[in-house]
C-alpha cells in the first residue's frame, strides 16, 4: 500500500490542497456563475410570464372594449332613430301648419279680391246709372226743344 501510494505520488498534504482548491472553485463559481445565471434565468422567466399574462389581459380588455363599443353604437342608433322620428313628426306638423297658413292667406286674398271686384262692379253700376239719367235728361230736353 505504501509503495502504491508512493508510486502514484499520493501525499496527504497535496490531497488536502487539491480538495481545498476544488472547494474554493466550487464556492467562487457558485457565487459568481451559477447563482447569477440562475437569477437572470428566473428574472427572464418572470418577465416572460408577466408578458404573456399582460397580453392575455390586454386581449380580454380589447374584447370587452369591443362589446362595449358595439353596445354604445346600438344605443346611439336607437337614439338617432328616435331623433329622426321626432324630427319627421315635427316637420309634418310644421308643414301642415304652413299649408294651413298659406290656405288662410290665399282665402283672405281671394276674399279681398272679391270684395274689391264687387265694389268696382257697384261703382260701375252707379256710374252707369248716373250716365243713363244724364242721357235721359238730355234726350228729354232735346224732345222738348223740338216741340
Amino acid at each position: 500500500m505504501q509503495q502504491l501510494l508512493a508510486a502514484f505520488g499520493i501525499n496527504g498534504k497535496l490531497l488536502i490542497a487539491q480538495a481545498v482548491n476544488f472547494g474554493l472553485l466550487l464556492v467562487v463559481l457558485t457565487y459568481f456563475f451559477y447563482r447569477p445565471l440562475m437569477r437572470i434565468l428566473e428574472e427572464r422567466r418572470n418577465i416572460v410570464t408577466k408578458g404573456v399574462d399582460d397580453a392575455a389581459r390586454a386581449a380580454e380588455k380589447l374584447a370587452s372594449a369591443d362589446t362595449l363599443a358595439a353596445a354604445h353604437v346600438a344605443e346611439a342608433e336607437v337614439a338617432a332613430g328616435h331623433i329622426l322620428k321626432a324630427a319627421r313628426e315635427e316637420a309634418g306638423t310644421e308643414r301642415s301648419r304652413l299649408v294651413k297658413e298659406a290656405e288662410a292667406r290665399a282665402a283672405a286674398i281671394a276674399a279681398d279680391a272679391q270684395a274689391r271686384a264687387e265694389e268696382v262692379a257697384a261703382k260701375t253700376q252707379r256710374d252707369s246709372e248716373k250716365e243713363i239719367a244724364r242721357l235721359a235728361i238730355l234726350a228729354a230736353e232735346r224732345v222738348l226743344r223740338n216741340q
Binding site: 502514484f8 505520488g9 499520493i10 501525499n11 490531497l15 488536502i16 487539491q18 480538495a19 476544488f22
Partner: peptide, 12 residues
C-alpha cells in the same frame, strides 16, 4: 494525470 487530484475529487 495526478492521482492526488483525481483521488481528492473522488473523496469529495
Amino acid at each position: 494525470t495526478d492521482l492526488n487530484v483525481t483521488l481528492a475529487l473522488a473523496i469529495i
